[in-house]
Amino acid sequence: MKRRDPWRIGGAVFLAGLTIFALLPMAWMLITSLKTQFAALQYPPQWLPKNPTLEQYSLLLSPGNPVGQEFLRYLFNSLWVSFASTVLGVVVAVPAAYAFSRFRFPGRNLLFYSVLLRNMFPAVVFLMPLFIMMRWLGLVNTQASLILTYLTFGLPLSIWLLKGFYDNIPVQLEQAARIDGASRFQAFILIVMPLSSPGIIATAIYSFIMAWNEYVYALTFINNAERLTLPVGLQRFFTEYATNWPGLMAASFIMSVPVVALFLVLQKYFVRALTEGAVKS
């Protein structure tokens, strides 16, 4: 059995190449972030920093200086916006996903497919009308505008993912609960909700990451530096400190850490969330 299979060797080589392709940019980000500005701007480049330094990180993360203050504010804003829109999205999506999974009310399919179709529409289509709406509501330059608009992608996605999870919970459990004396709603709250918590966590993380990384709406709706989120804040950094590549790379790294960490810890759920629905045997 253990003979040398050319397919296997080819696969290993391909995988190794792909891993290098995936990792090199990130490795270079990390290496650059550990250099001084002077060391970064050399040709040919220093492959490894001669005098590695954490000065960029301490600059960004210490509230004592203006750069750090600004950066931490963006970080905090991003956390708040992502958290709030995730919670809001999940709270609204859970009952809807449950209803789509379990009930057969008239119009169910029509509604559900329009939820799916949302995934087709580019953010830009929504940008202008939402901008007008936010102006009308007086929400331009507020984080409420972002929290609300993030629902445009967060909600349909959450409904779709959660429906997949609910589909996998045997309907007999609720039937048993209803026979045991629970109302439909009690069966949902007391039996189904606790069972679907892994699904809810996975969905929440997914929409958190989406919100954390969102750029277009933040770029358009907010131009007050006090309220910017990280992705736009990063861009602002770039314009302000154009040649500070180590600083920019350090900021990119810090920005990536939470999502990559969340993702790696919960990889199993995440993969399931992404592929749920698309792969039905």
Partner: peptide
């Protein structure tokens, strides 16, 4: 409703 029928399943 099932809960009011006094049955077990």
């Amino acid at each position: 409703d099932p809960k009011d029928r006094d049955i077990a399943m």
